[in-house]
Design a protein around this nucleic acid. Sequence first.
DNA 1: TTAGGGTTAG
Length: 622
Amino acid sequence: MAPILLNLPNQLTFESNVAQTLSLLERCTNMMELKQIHAHIYKTGLIIDPIPVSRLLTFSTSLDFGNLIYARKVFDRISRRNTFMWNTMIRGYSNSNEPKEALFLYHQMLCHSAPHNAYTFPFLLKACSRMSALEETQQIHAQIIKTGFGLDIYATNSLLHVYAISGSIRSAHLLFDRLPHRDIVSWNSMIDGYTKSGDIDTASKFFKDMPVKNVISWTAMISGFVGANLNKEALKLFHEMQVASIKPDNVALVSSLSACAHLGSLDEGRWIHTYIDKNGVEIDPILGCVLIDMYVKCGDMDEALKVFRKLEKQSISAWTAIINGFAIHGQGQEALDWFMKMQKAGIKPNSITFTAILTACSHAGLVDEGKLLFKIMMTDYKLNPTIEHYGCMVDLLGRAGLLLEAKELIEKMPLHPNPAIWGALLNACRIHGHLELGKQIGKILIEVDPTHGGRYIHLASIHAADGEWDQAVQVRSRMKNQGVSKLPGCSAISLNGIIHEFLAGYASHPQMDEIYKMWNQIAEKLQQDGYKPATGDLLLDLDDEEKERAIQQHSEKLAIAFGLIRTKPETTIRIFKNLRVCEDCHTVLKLISKIYAREIIVRDRTRFHLFKEGKCSCRDYW
DNA sequence: TTAGGGTTAG
């Protein structure tokens, strides 16, 4: 380690020693150097001077290079601690993974009758916000008023922020209304609080009403829209932000890229990537990860890999995003290869990496590999499986037809099964025709998830598949009586940067006549190829002709017909669907890829399907 | 000293 003290003269006056030591502390870049300076401070008697000691604390509590344990040892040995020192330690803990310690320290501060200042409360409240500690926040709120800091904008804004994001948005709103002084931070916290409480309308109202907006206000609203799955609104706001001449920073770019990933908007995503390159935006680890994920979810693995290779440092999240990319593209072996590569590069997989690799095994039918990975995750990596991992395993076993094993896993798992777990098992029952078990699980699912329309549809379709039409109709009416609606199937296709959306059975597009005409042509060619509509997925008690008509109006069929009209021969057609592709549409898309010699890429709710020459990349395993 | 970001099963 560099001997930082080498050039320090031996004989110094007290004053010039203070000056030179402070200058050394300013240049200090790591704990080893800091320890040398600390020894020097001790040896030369500077330890009685509060300024160098405070600087020691500031450095050793810093997030990047600090060592909080060391800082605490220094702090505990200081005989006369001033408010700055207490605050520095409280701030250190509030940013650490033991924010509770900040509150303990504050308690000690009170016991020592050390005076507060305006900096004490924001640090303390930061600790509360990290823990969502509402009761403690209320106590500190009282303390703020008692000690006369009730009008301090930093203290009140910090309070507002904790209330807003810790599940007490009403307290935040009350406080906001009573504040004699509000600034942009107060408004931004309200926007963030309302979006995090799921009330996007009130958040929008605050955004609209605020007198001045900065990049944080715009980003809080954009990420609020993304969180509410209103990705189109998020991108619209991103554009409005450019019109308002607000320069997006990394956080704004991350939120907007995330919206592109959800929508599958490759063109928009590319535009943002170009913006990043042109403006020399530094790709930090989060931005890098989201950029990869955007390309992954828009179906462009090659570009995702290019971004990955160009990253200055490949973080665990970047590796995970790539592995997940291969997983959802059904390239199980590549996912496994990258998982090995990652470990060779010295990166230890985390819990999310295992979710990605188990998903890869599940989508590719790699049962033995998945089982082994699930085991070594616990034994070798000491990671406790979460509900997500169990979800992957139930899906992996269920899809492979090992239903009993999947059911056993659910019964034995130490966590309470959630709707997703039952959903995975139900899907397996549907694939493998285990109707009795399917009915049992369908009933359980409706009980645990009564507001989810898809659950009723599932159960009704299983009854229908078993010819129990009365039961199917009963489930449907129960759904109707409960006021639950089904999420309509929606397929989107992007042409020249414009997204065209199609809803199942809903003739909303201006070119609908042309689209139906095209579909009739397609249907004729399909028939010539020996295709018969598979109506098994339909739950309604319709006659066969009606069933055929209903199935012909599935959104992906309308989107493909439109894609064939509007794109040149041989162009790849990309479709994004909000639900799972049905069996009939899957068959049809395979045939169209052969008859029209087109590559068709469909991203459904869970994965990508690449239809080419009459086959699908999922090998009909989805 | 206070406010906004990511990768995760179905």
